[in-house]
Amino acid sequence: MILRIENVTKDFKVSHGPLARATHFTALKDVSLSVGKGESFGLVGESGSGKTTLTRLILQLDRVSSGRILFDGTDLASLSARDLRHLRSRIQIVFQDPYASLNPRMTVHDIISEPMEIHQDTLGLNARQRTDRVVELLELVGLGGQHLFRFPHEFSGGQRQRIGIARALAVRPEFLILDEPTSALDVSVQAQVLNLLHELQAKLGLTYFFISHDLGVIRYVCDRVALIYRGEIVEQGETERIFEAPESDYARLLLSAMPEPDPDRSPFRPPAASAG
């Protein structure tokens, strides 16, 4: 197991002004899950379910209220600032919105080489080597080195997401958090990006932590899945098992709400009625 989350709870203090007493809001409640090396683990939840909080905890952007997060056997909370920085280069993230997650004032070269600059002490690349690596990464994600000095706004959504993936891969991570990486993209482009992610996983031996609300995508991409609802894991297991025989009410609800692109399976039409 490369990532093990043990009984993690996260409370936020909610202030209601200087006179009112602050209340607690529990974003995650006793969450446990583990991700094996080289697998694709899916986390499914709707807005406000706590999936963003969980990613922030894994990335150590927030601290757990109780419980432990172990990465490759070490408790993240026990690490010194220096070791944490080192560890950060092993966990990277691809964000949902390829429009907002790239700095509009930086060139593609600067965007992709930035993580290498930050983790200079771990990687030890000089400026020339970094540029070479950026070109290599651009080719890896199917873009090509001629885009080196362009700005994000000159790219389409799918191309930007490729840049985001190249940035995440720059420091040779083992573990990639994919936070709804295709939900802002057109289906045709989504297919390209999903295929790219599949190729990269095979080529680089990456572990994926794939967050999505699109069950079709999750089913296509993930080996195992956890469903999170209001901060609690309601069901987890092998993807096929959950899709074929969901045990929780929530899983059944989600599956029934999933719009399938098949007119015969519409809840609004009896089969073979109202056709042409």
Partner: peptide, 26 residues
């Protein structure tokens, strides 16, 4: 709160870098 600033933070960027490279130019 912009995503690209969050992204830089997730990469491990420090305060100086975030202000200088990500926030002020924008």
């Amino acid at each position: 709160e912009e995503m690209f600033v969050q992204a830089a933070r997730a990469l491990g960027a420090g305060t100086g870098r975030i202000l200088r490279r990500h926030i002020l130019p924008n």
